[in-house]
Computed example of a mutant assay.
Amino acid sequence: MRRGLAVGVTAVAFLLAACGGEPEEFSGIELDQPYAAPTVELTDTDGLPYSIAADNDKPLTLVFFGYTHCPDVCPLVMNNIAAGLNRLDESDRDDVAMVFVTTDPERDDEQVLRAYLDGYGKDFIGLTGDLADIIAAGDPLHLYVNDGKKLPTGGYDLGGHSTYVLGIDDHDEATVIWNQETSATEFASDIHTLLSED
């Protein structure tokens, strides 16, 4: 299995202005060769089939693979996404969907996902399903998902999943990735920039 995200990218500097904390430049990484959004159907928190490629018509969709029992990286990323979206004006916010795909479907059923995501955004979309389908959904996005190992304590070691956030445009292509250190301010600025280019 892949052990990371192999990308051909154009590096973009991560710079902040001296005053105000506003990013001077685009903070994400723009993909030279965009990835196709996955067509595989998973299950949303209403129990309905959902395909990232087919069932979303927003100009921009943020996609993050994680799990609700994640102790560190996932809450950090999700908090920054939520805070970044809250910084947008209403017209920009209406043009963005946020999709969270669990990498721990054994524990993250529809109800668990909905309760978790409501803490970040009532309109956030949560997806679960068979682990094989989740891995298949990650493949075209070059996201690594392992199958987890149960620990003697009863928990799971799922540390192998990728921690990137992808931005998928209305042509069903992932054109941007953000790393786990992207701040709320950087998300908001980048999202506004991407939406302004349409």
Rank of each mutant, 00 (worst) to 15 (best):
L5P: 00
G8A: 13
V9Y: 08
V9A: 14
A13M: 09
F14H: 14
L15M: 12
L15N: 10
C19K: 14
P23Q: 08
E30M: 13
A37S: 10
P38E: 08
T39W: 00
L42N: 11
T45Y: 12
D57A: 14
T61I: 11
F64P: 00
Y67T: 01
H69E: 08
H69A: 12
D72C: 02
M78T: 07
N80E: 15
I81N: 01
A82Q: 04
A82P: 01
A83G: 07
L85C: 01
N86Q: 13
L88Q: 03
D89A: 07
E90L: 08
E90R: 08
R93T: 00
A97I: 03
V99L: 07
V101K: 09
V101L: 10
R107F: 14
R107G: 06
R107L: 13
D109R: 12
E110N: 14
E110R: 12
Q111I: 12
V112T: 13
L117Y: 08
L117W: 06
D118T: 08
G119R: 07
G121T: 05
G121P: 03
T128M: 11
G129M: 13
L131M: 15
I135S: 09
G138L: 10
Y144T: 15
D147Q: 11
D147V: 11
G148L: 09
K150M: 13
Y156L: 06
L158H: 05
G167H: 02
H171C: 00
D172V: 00
E173S: 10
T182C: 05
S189E: 06
D190G: 03
L194T: 01
S196Y: 02
D198C: 03
D198H: 12
